[in-house]
C-alpha cells in the first residue's frame, strides 16, 4: 500500500448555513456558560437553539418547506421556511412538498425534517412516512433515520414505518440502501426490509393513495412546523404553573412534548402525571404509553411503567 494517497477523497465543505449554525451555537454556549464544559448533551441543545435562531437565514439561502392540505383545496400552502421543522400529526396525515421530494407524514407520527441547501434529512421519532424523491445525480442522498435504522436514497418512492424499536421499509420504485448497525442492504422496488418480517401495515401504507385530511384538524398542529419551540422554557413555565394554573400548565407541557430531546420527554411525562393527578386516567394512560414508545430509554421509563400498572 502507498505511503500516502495520491488523490485523497475530496473534503466536502459545510454549507454556509451549517457554518452559521455552528457559529451561533458556539456563541450561545459561550454566552450561557462562563467556563463551558464540553458536554455533548448541552452542546446539542445549544445547536438546536442556534438552528432555530437562524431560521430566517435559511430563507435567504433559498430553503423552503410547503405543507399541502389536499382536502381543503388543491393549492399548496407555504407554512414555513426554515432549516429544521418538527411535524406531529394526530388522526390525519399531512402532505409536504420539499425541493426535489414529496413526503406524506402518516397519522399519529412525529417527524423532524432538516433541509440545508441540497442536504435533506428526515428523522422519524414515531409513526411513518411515504416519500418520493426525484433522482439526485449530483446532490447528497436523502437520508431517513428511524431509530438505529438509516435509509439513504438518490431517487425512488418508498415508505418507512416505525413502531417502537421496529422499523419497516417498503420500496415502491427505484432502490434504497438500508443501514442497520454495521449491516447494509439494498432494497429494490417491490421489496421490503426486513425481508422476513410481515409488514402488513407498512405495505398497506405504501400501496395506498394519499389519505384525505380531516378539515377540522387541530389549528396548533397546522402551525407547528413553522414555530421554533424552546422546550426547556416551556417546561419550566409549565412547572411553575402546575398549582396556580393547571390547565395552562397542561397546554405548555403539551407544546413542549411535541419536541424531540430530553425536555420533550420530560414534558410528555409531566403532562401525563398532571392529567393523572386530575383523575383524567384514560388520557394519562395514552400519554404514558406514548412516552414509553417515544422514549424507551427515557429518564422516567420506570415511573411511567409503574403509573401504568397502577392505572390498570
Amino acid at each position: 500500500m502507498t505511503d500516502s494517497f495520491q488523490t485523497p477523497p475530496p473534503i466536502e465543505d459545510l454549507s454556509e448555513i451549517s457554518w452559521k449554525r455552528v457559529e451561533q451555537g458556539l456563541m450561545n454556549a459561550l454566552d450561557s456558560a462562563p467556563a463551558p464544559q464540553v458536554a455533548s448533551t448541552s452542546l446539542r441543545r445549544t445547536r438546536v437553539v442556534g438552528a432555530l435562531a437562524l431560521a430566517c437565514m435559511t430563507v435567504a439561502a433559498g430553503g423552503f418547506l410547503v405543507v399541502s392540505r389536499p382536502d381543503r383545496n388543491s393549492d399548496e400552502v407555504a407554512v414555513s421556511i426554515q432549516s429544521t421543522s418538527e411535524i406531529s400529526t394526530q388522526d390525519s396525515p399531512t402532505s409536504i412538498v420539499l425541493r426535489g421530494a414529496s413526503l406524506e407524514v402518516h397519522s399519529h407520527s412525529d417527524v423532524a425534517i432538516e433541509q440545508l441547501g441540497d442536504n435533506l434529512a428526515i428523522q422519524i421519532d414515531e409513526g411513518g412516512i411515504t416519500m418520493h424523491v426525484e433522482p439526485r445525480d449530483h446532490e447528497a442522498p436523502v437520508t431517513v433515520s428511524a431509530g438505529n435504522v438509516q435509509i439513504e436514497v438518490v431517487g425512488t418512492t418508498f415508505s418507512v414505518y416505525r413502531e417502537m424499536s421496529q422499523t419497516h421499509v417498503v420500496v415502491a420504485e427505484g432502490i434504497v440502501a438500508v443501514s442497520h448497525g454495521d449491516k447494509r442492504e439494498l432494497v429494490r422496488a417491490g421489496e421490503q426490509w426486513p425481508a422476513q418480517t410481515k409488514t402488513t401495515e407498512a405495505s398497506a401504507i405504501a400501496s395506498s393513495p394519499v389519505q384525505k385530511v380531516d378539515p377540522a384538524e387541530d389549528q396548533e398542529l397546522r402551525q407547528a412546523p413553522g414555530k421554533p419551540v424552546d422546550a426547556r422554557a416551556l417546561f419550566e413555565q409549565a412547572a411553575a404553573k402546575e398549582h396556580s394554573a393547571p390547565t395552562e400548565a397542561l397546554q405548555l407541557y403539551r407544546r413542549a412534548a411535541k419536541t424531540r430531546g430530553p425536555w420533550g420527554a420530560n414534558a410528555l411525562f409531566a403532562q401525563a402525571r398532571l392529567l393523572l393527578a386530575q383523575s383524567k386516567t384514560n388520557k394519562a394512560k395514552t400519554l404514558l404509553q406514548r412516552y414509553l414508545r417515544r422514549f424507551p430509554s427515557g429518564p422516567n421509563v420506570a415511573d411511567a411503567q409503574s403509573l401504568l400498572k397502577e392505572i390498570e
Binding site: E12, L14, S18, V22, G25, L26, Q37, V38, R47
Partner: peptide, 19 residues
C-alpha cells in the same frame, strides 16, 4: 470521512479551545 456529526465536533473543538 463525512460531515455527519461534524458540526457538533467543530463546536466541541472551539469550546475546548476557548476553555
Amino acid at each position: 470521512g463525512s460531515n455527519r456529526e461534524i458540526e457538533d465536533l467543530v463546536q466541541d473543538t472551539f469550546l475546548e479551545v476557548f476553555r
